[in-house]
């Protein structure tokens, strides 16, 4: 599941946010990928369309890395 979600994140980050694919890794922080807090909110909107799960503002508070976000999505999917 985690691999599938990573693939979704990779697709969204490359296509919607212009992040080079080779920089994207589970442990990469959104900050390092060039996304600020507004970008992360935007990312959650795109993700909702792709995976049907919306991360709310308060759930994003301790999200730093792609893996953090994947974990939150999996938690909500469970």
């Amino acid at each position: 599941m985690s691999q599938e979600l990573l693939a979704v994140f990779t697709e969204v980050l490359t296509e919607e946010f212009g992040v080079p694919e080779d920089e994207i890794a589970a442990e990469a922080t959104f900050e390092a990928l060039g996304l600020d807090s507004l970008d992360v909110v935007e990312l959650t909107l795109v993700l909702e369309e792709k995976v049907g799960v919306k991360l709310e503002d308060e759930e994003l508070e301790d999200v730093r890395t792609v893996q953090d976000a994947i974990d939150k999505v999996e938690e909500k999917q469970a």
Binding site: E16, G18, G34, L38, D39
Partner: peptide, 12 residues
């Protein structure tokens, strides 16, 4: 715009 303004910037 991506080439002119840089990665991510154009989209914002």
């Amino acid at each position: 715009p991506d080439a002119e303004l840089g990665r991510g910037a154009a989209r914002r």
